[in-house]
């Protein structure tokens, strides 16, 4: 493994799961061997959690690679990528591990994969025979082994590893709750459709220390579509929460980059004015609906105060929505809020919270709104959560990209460092008048 592998110190900067996700994604795109040491050294417990293992395994499958160390608790991951293969993939950490993070890890690879090469027949064969699973098992020789072989019409699940955004310790302590086991692999007939790559992801859709899936659907995906000229669709079939997860969603790439071509560079530097804000709070399961009302009320107080400033001659319309999830639309108990602001130049910024155990709805709503207001005040085109998520696309692109951001977050600095370590991309931070401000980035 180690011959010629790029070494990433997993304890550097943010030192959590983001390093792992970005590094394996870039390894799969560049074809570079990768060794990550001291994985999640800044988390307790350190090492890979279930959701990280699943993410590593998922990307390994997409790039037809060989992985080592993709096991829970592992502090070293080694990946020898092969060639990215478009396909229909399924990943299930078997916990409330965040599906949003799995989608994040897989998306850059799938956007470059091109259309399915055999019209989906290849996937069907995998589902019936489990051949790919067996082959991958033989190739990778993962420590955990493959939990299941595929049967006709069933998802083929593979072995998995770990998880997280900043610190998913809480979700991961519970361990797998699905009796069918955790895994990431290609799937058979369950995801149908045309000749496009897709993901079927199970786990937590609204988990602490990770973006809620609504954020990915309403902010990341629309922004990526707009900036890169690709087409993505997400369908959330069922929300899932800590500790049992069991949420389910599909992501379909209906227009990717032509194989052999690069992602385009982009410029997102004009924020414009806020033209609308949509605030949506939901409750599910045992959490009563008045919790979402509390979230909305406290969020409204923050927004009212902000938009009552003399700076706003005409405040934007703000729409409030309280949603009561049904047993069909959500599994388990949970609540959350997302505030989405859209601007006249097409920027989308959001604040969000998943209700923590014991947390008051009013506190979650206020915090989410304060996040959004803070990001609007900064004047950037993206919120604090999107800035680091776009770094990998800038790094892979052909040409020079520019992104107007608020103060760089630790996650952004980490993503930049990983991108520069794994690829020949070079990042700079500039003030509005073009002066270097690199001390903030480094």
């Amino acid at each position: 493994f180690d011959g010629g592998a790029t070494h990433i110190d997993g304890s550097y900067f943010e030192g959590g799961g983001q390093v792992v996700r970005n590094a394996v994604a870039l390894a799969s795109i560049t074809g570079q061997k990768l060794r990550i040491s001291d994985v999640r050294a800044n988390r307790r417990p350190s090492g890979l959690a279930y959701q990280h293992c699943t993410g590593v395994e998922l990307v390994t499958r997409i790039c037809d690679g060989v992985v080592g160390g993709a096991a829970v608790g592992s502090t070293e991951v080694r990946l020898a990528p092969g060639t990215i293969v478009p396909g229909r993939y399924v990943a299930d950490p078997g916990t409330a591990g965040a599906t949003a993070l799995l989608a994040q890890a897989a998306l850059p690879c799938l956007l470059l994969a091109g259309p399915l090469q055999n019209g989906g027949e290849e996937m069907e064969a995998l589902g019936k025979g489990g051949g790919a699973s067996a082959a991958a098992k033989e190739r990778s020789g993962t420590e955990s082994g493959f939990e299941q072989e595929g049967k006709a019409g069933e998802h083929v699940t593979a072995s998995v590893s770990l998880v997280d955004y900043a610190d998913d310790t809480e979700q991961e302590e519970a361990g797998p709750s699905h009796k069918e086991g955790m895994g990431a692999g290609k799937e058979g007939s369950a995801v149908t459709g045309g000749g496009f790559s897709s993901l079927l992801l199970r786990g937590g859709t609204d988990a602490s220390k990770a973006p809620p899936i609504d954020y990915i659907k309403e902010v990341l995906f629309p922004t990526v579509k707009r900036l890169l000229g690709v087409e993505l669709e997400m369908h959330v079939k069922r929300r899932g929460f800590y500790p049992k997860g069991n949420g389910e969603l599909t992501v379909t790439i209906t227009k990717s980059v032509e194989r052999g071509k690069c992602l385009p560079a982009f410029s997102l530097t004009e924020r414009g004015n806020v033209t609308s804000v949509h605030v949506r709070a939901f409750t599910a399961g045992a959490l009563p609906q008045h919790v979402s009302e509390e979230m909305l009320q406290s969020a409204r107080a923050v927004l009212d105060s902000f938009f009552s400033s003399p700076a706003f001659a005409s405040p934007p319309p703000v729409q409030y929505e309280s949603v009561r999830e049904t047993p069909e639309s959500a599994f388990g108990n949970g609540a959350g809020i997302l505030l989405l602001a859209e601007t006249s130049t097409g920027c989308r910024l959001a604040g969000s919270r998943v209700l923590e155990r014991g947390q008051k709805g009013a506190d979650a709503g206020r915090e989410a709104a304060e996040d959004l207001v803070g990001d609007l005040r900064s004047g950037g085109c993206v919120d604090r959560y999107l800035q680091d998520q776009l770094v990998v696309f800038m790094a892979a692109a052909e040409g020079t990209s520019r992104l107007l951001i608020g103060r760089p977050t630790l996650h952004t600095c980490t993503a930049v460092w990983v991108a520069e370590s794994m690829a020949s991309a070079r990042f700079r931070l500039l003030t509005h008048d073009g002066q270097p401000a690199t001390n903030l980035l480094r």
Binding site: C262, F312, L376, L430, H432
Partner: peptide, 20 residues
């Protein structure tokens, strides 16, 4: 709203032109 220019920066990147 806000005060663009005091708390925002341009993140600029020369991409690596990666493909597969």
């Amino acid at each position: 709203f806000g005060d663009p220019g005091t708390e925002s920066w341009i993140l600029e990147c020369d991409g690596a032109a990666l493909n597969v």
